[in-house]
Every structure is written in C-alpha cells, then in structure tokens.
C-alpha cells in the first residue's frame, strides 16, 4: 500500500466514525461539531483526488458558513436536547435491513463489476476559469440567488420576531 492509500483509508475511517457520531448524538451542538470534522475529512479526500478548489469550497461553504449558521440558530433558539425515546426494534429493524442490503450490493458491485477497475479521466478546472465561467455565464442566476437570500433573510427576521412575540404572550397568559 502506498502512503496515499494509507492516507485514504485513514481519512475514510475518520469520516465514517465522525458522521456516525454526528447522527447519533443527542446534543445538537455535539453532532454539529462531529459533522464539521466529517466535512474536513471529505475536503482532504478531495484534495487527495487532485481537486484543491473543491476542497477549499467544501471547507469554506459547508464546514464554515453552513455549519456556523447551524450553530448560531441552535444557540439562538436554545433548543434543549430533546428527551426522545430510544427507537424500538420495530422502528430500526426495517432501516437496518435495508441498509444491510445496500452494503451487500455495494460490496458485490465493487468486487464483481469490471467497470469499477477503469480509471476515470480527471476533469480539472482552475479556480480562475471556474470563477469566470460561473460569474460570466451564470451572472444572472448568481444575482437572483443573492436577491433570494435577502428575501429569505427578511422573512426569517419576520418569522423569528413573530415567534418570540408569541412566546412572550404565552408567558403573560401563564402569570
């Protein structure tokens, strides 16, 4: 095994463990931290595959922006870790069986399919080319998306305010 191979398996393992932990934690903040670790792992995988721009975007957008936003929301709403019941056997059995089928099929595909042996041609795009392509050809879409974000922000502000007000009313009712 080459050193790259070793790095790959280490990264893959870390990602798997981190993602597994992320979806099993009861505390939302903990699960987000694990998810961030998993994103960092994927970013390094991309780098390993020769896509540095994708790696950077993964960290900047997913691990950085989106996850920080999640953290903000959770902290703002102060969601208590919910006291959910543990899922019963009947609940997780179907999911488990289906998941196992997936694993089995995936192993089968990887080991038997000759197509899995072929090496795909790498598509390389320099950041400069990529950026130019995006902001020239899709200029209008980018602008509309930015406007969309503004509207979503105003809406979130409004709905958040209404939510807080309602909460206040309830407290008055109780007293």
């Amino acid at each position: 095994m080459t050193v790259y191979g070793a790095v790959f398996y280490i990264l893959a393992g870390v990602i798997l463990i981190a993602t597994g932990l992320a979806i099993t934690r009861r505390n939302l903040v903990h699960s987000i931290v694990y998810l961030v670790i998993s994103f960092f792992g994927s970013a390094m995988l991309y780098y390993l595959f020769g896509a540095p721009l994708l790696a950077a975007l993964e960290i900047i957008i997913y691990a950085g922006a989106i996850m920080v936003l999640f953290l903000f929301i959770i902290m703002m709403l102060r969601v208590e870790p919910s006291a959910l019941r543990k899922p019963t056997l009947r609940q997780w059995l179907p999911a488990g069986v289906l998941g196992l089928i997936y694993v089995a099929v995936a192993i089968l595909v990887v080991t038997t399919d000759p197509g899995s042996q072929t090496i795909l041609e790498t598509a390389l795009a320099r950041p400069r080319v990529f950026g130019r392509f995006l902001f020239q050809r899709y200029w209008l879409s980018v602008e509309i998306v930015s406007f969309l974000l503004l509207i979503a922000l105003v809406g979130a502000l409004y709905l958040g305010k209404a939510f807080v007000k309602e909460g206040g009313d309830q407290k008055e009712d109780q007293s």
Partner: peptide
C-alpha cells in the same frame, strides 16, 4: 421573480427565479 421566470430560457435561471417567487409567497402566507 415571475417576470424573470417568464423571460428565462436557461434551466438554472428558471429554477432560481421560481424559488425567489416561491420564497416571497412562503413568507406572505403566514
């Protein structure tokens, strides 16, 4: 958004214009 929707002839633009109009309505309803 709807004005842009009826003029768009590119799938990505159509999609984001549609979303812009939908988001506005999502907030108008409540």
């Amino acid at each position: 958004a709807m004005m842009m929707l009826v003029s768009s002839v590119e799938l990505l633009t159509i999609y984001v214009a549609l979303e812009l109009s939908s988001y506005s309505l999502y907030i108008l309803v409540p």
